[in-house]
Amino acid sequence: MFGKLYYQDKGLFLQSFHPAAVLVYFLVLLVLSLLYDNPLYLLSLLFLLALLINGVDGMEAWEGFLKVGVLMTLVVMVVNPLVIRAGATIIWHGPAVPFLGRLDISMEAIYFGAVSGLRLLVIMSIFCLYNLMVNPDNVLNLFSRAAGKSALMVALATRMFPAMVRDLKRIKEVMQLRGVDFEEGSLWERVKKYSVLYNVMLLSSLEGSMEIAESMQARAYGSGRRSVYSRKLLRPRDYLSMGGSLLALSAAAWGLHNGCGRYAFYPVADALVGGSSTLAALFVVLFYLSVPLILSEGCKYCRFIKSKI
């Protein structure tokens, strides 16, 4: 189960971007999802993300992320109405509670809770897409210029992880055949039994770390400044998507400055569409953000685009 990275290379167009371009793109998405309050904007972001996730064959993975998201959403939706007193449309007058004061549940508070939940789903989807779209190795490679040792440690640990899980299983089997019953006994007894397993693992892996260190040393690790091996190419598609992200960010900033994307829930919720400028700003931002999607689709259907990007 833990033998594979979450990211799987499927050779899709969307997976072929340079990690820097993808990181910029995701950062913009994240910032926008946190800045926008208007449910319409958030919904459009979610829609865009759904298309992208579909583009990387990730519907199944998305479901998993959404499940967690919905769970957290429920917490948010319960907590918000309990503490918010600003709403005008009270639907239930509750009793006074010592710590929280009077429990007046308002329509707007529930609404706000729901929108917060929506935002959460957007954020979950962003990370879902990130996991499906970017090879962590390439991101590490990007960072190894700035923080080479950390990147190396992360790479090494990532590589050791599946081996560790395999070792764990094997040692557990060995122990079972030596007469240890892991399923029997009280919690304390079971923990005691697991401690045997734990000891073997810890000793073996610490010994292993010495061997790895030796091999690193033999390959000149720490003998001076390291250089960085990078094999990712910057292609027109990367410039296009990076440009798109930056334009989207500036368009969004300009829009927010003029009130597009802002939204007041209290005392009474705004109208969803405040005017044509709201829609225009949304459209522009969405257009810039969908550059990767457009490229991906265009690439599928048009040889010319494919050859140029």
Partner: peptide, 11 residues
């Protein structure tokens, strides 16, 4: 098993 450091073959 104890001398491979990186996650990918090329790296």
């Amino acid at each position: 098993e104890k001398q491979i450091v990186q996650t990918h073959v090329e790296a």
